[in-house]
């Protein structure tokens, strides 16, 4: 039997990234390697530094030390022609960084209201990133809006409704549609199911899994919910007081945790 190809190209890398707001507050000397097509979960209690890490990785907070490297050639697939290989996120200009966030990356906020424009319709919300990329055909924007509403299980007939008239779970799905419409290579998700009713969470999780597979997304997912992490993440990093205490395959971390803190975290989960 032939040996399968187990290697995946590196898409995003953190090298010794540090940002401290106080002793043990923030992130300290974090190394990360996210591979193409991978969902990396960052778990930990609130205050562990996982949200700070997300912001550092997503280009929103400049680290005190260390580098965040985006391998844009990996993002382009095999050809990668005409693209710089490695982009040092905080060495490139702000213009390039923001363009990256707008075009090649996506960010899903915990609170959909932070990621949506509440004053304009669902269709305008979905179309915004396309318009930012230069789409200037109203009919096509609308078709894309309807298509994406269907994909995230929203009624396309409500394309002209304001997000305010949607439930929390629907708003979250709208935010996901708005983020994924430009087919980003890399998506950052901050507690994407955090504010939702349990009954709505499951459907959203399934939808996210399907989208990750269909679009070949690479995801960095921050969550305190180990059940969410188990269902969505391929790999986990456990954070505590600004440091990574353990990392590995998701079921390895959850079923055979090595570090004392991870064992405590895993054994503290309530299972019905």
């Amino acid at each position: 039997m032939r040996r399968p190809d187990l290697e995946r190209a590196t898409l995003l890398e953190a090298r010794g990234v540090t940002r401290l707001y106080g002793p043990g507050k923030g992130c300290e000397a974090i190394d990360i390697r996210l591979h193409r097509g991978e969902v990396l979960g960052i778990v930990g209690e609130s205050g562990s530094g996982k949200s700070t890490l997300l912001r550092l990785l997503a280009g929103m907070v400049r680290p005190d030390a260390g580098q965040v490297i985006y391998h844009s050639s990996a993002a382009q697939g095999c050809d990668g022609s005409g693209h710089e290989g490695e982009l040092d996120l905080y060495a490139i200009g702000e213009a390039r960084r923001r363009a990256l966030l707008r075009m090649e990356w996506g960010l899903v906020h915990q609170n959909p209201r932070d990621g949506l424009r509440l004053g304009v319709s669902a269709g305008a919300n979905i179309g915004e990133r396309l318009m930012a990329l230069g789409e200037r055909h109203y009919g096509q924007l609308r078709a894309a809006g309807q298509d994406w509403m269907g994909r995230v299980e929203l009624d396309p007939g409500r394309i002209d409704d304001a997000p305010r008239t949607f439930s929390g779970g629907m708003q979250q799905r709208l935010q996901i549609a708005r983020t994924l419409v430009t087919r980003p290579n890399l998506v950052f998700m901050d507690e994407p199911t955090g504010g939702l009713d349990v009954s709505v969470q499951a459907r959203l999780l399934d939808m996210l899994r399907t989208l990750v597979r269909e679009l070949g997304l690479s995801v960095i997912l921050v969550t305190h919910d180990l059940a969410v992490a188990r269902l969505l993440a391929h790999r986990l990093m456990v954070m505590r007081r600004g440091q990574v205490v353990e990392a590995g395959l998701t079921d390895q971390i959850l079923d055979d945790p090595q570090h004392a803190y991870t064992q405590l975290l895993v054994s503290s989960v309530l299972t019905p």
Binding site: E94, R98, G123, M131, Y138
Partner: peptide, 22 residues
């Protein structure tokens, strides 16, 4: 100011889109 500097003008069309939708 940053949006002008970086030519991030997608939102202008959001407004026009919304006009047509309404």
């Amino acid at each position: 100011r940053l949006m002008h500097a970086l030519e991030e003008y997608g939102v202008m069309h959001v407004k026009l889109y919304e006009d047509i939708a309404r």
